[in-house]
């Protein structure tokens, strides 16, 4: 739960110490998310810095013992949307429902991989390059991307994500489901491209 109350700190030192203890340890999470949102290091660093400066300013409103990571992510999402409002909209002309459930699983169980033994599945899953996974995430429309990141990478629960993004739980669920399917489709495109390259080279 993200809740706000007024906390009195004895002095600035105490405020800084408390901030360093609760907010700073989340910086890796915020930075890697900012990278996926902005798609470049310079903008990601700027965004993370802005989040932390903003968070420190309103740190007295953060209730100790509640979820600081969720509070920081809410600031991150709001700042990012304010900056890049236009690109934050999911294009409505595209239908993402076309991607079936278990897209990737169905692909590898139906074609060359054939009647896949477990270790083949494993091999397939581990064949993705880090850059392919990152690019596939970055290709997702904003609302799907942020939801997949919050759920699958940062491990937030539906309720927390709903609060961070200020949307109903049903919306979180549907964005996550569609985002995951679309991500699987993008990953499959990379796998296909690689196999194709291998065949043409040999």
């Amino acid at each position: 739960m993200i809740s706000e109350v007024r906390v009195e700190f004895k002095d600035e030192d105490e405020k800084i110490a408390s901030f360093e203890e609760t907010a700073i340890p989340n910086m890796d999470s915020l930075y890697r998310t900012a990278l996926r949102l902005t798609r470049n290091e310079k903008d990601a660093e700027d965004l993370v810095q802005e989040v932390y400066l903003r968070a420190f300013k309103s740190f007295h409103q953060f209730k100790p013992g509640t979820n600081c990571k969720a509070w920081l992510f809410k600031i991150l999402n709001n700042l990012h949307i304010n900056r890049f409002q236009k690109s934050a909209r999911t294009p409505s002309s595209l239908s993402f429902d076309e991607v079936e459930d278990f897209y990737l699983y169905n692909r590898i169980t139906e074609t060359p991989y054939g009647n896949t033994p477990k270790d083949m599945e494993e091999e397939f899953l581990n064949s993705f390059l880090d850059d392919e996974v990152k690019e596939a995430i970055e290709k997702l429309p904003y609302e799907f991307r942020i939801t997949v990141i919050l759920a699958d990478i940062e491990g937030f629960h539906y309720q927390e994500i709903a609060e961070i993004l200020s949307c109903p739980i049903g919306t979180v669920r549907s964005r996550l489901s569609r985002g995951r399917k679309l991500l699987q489709k993008y990953l499959w495109d990379y796998a296909k491209k690689r196999d194709y390259t291998k065949e043409t080279l040999s």
Binding site: D28, Y31, R32, R36, L125, D130, V133, I137, V148, D152
Partner: peptide, 14 residues
């Protein structure tokens, strides 16, 4: 698959 996506992403540090 979720684990793969997570572990690739979590390698990145600030």
């Amino acid at each position: 698959l979720v684990q793969v996506v997570r572990s690739v992403s979590q390698k990145e540090k600030c």
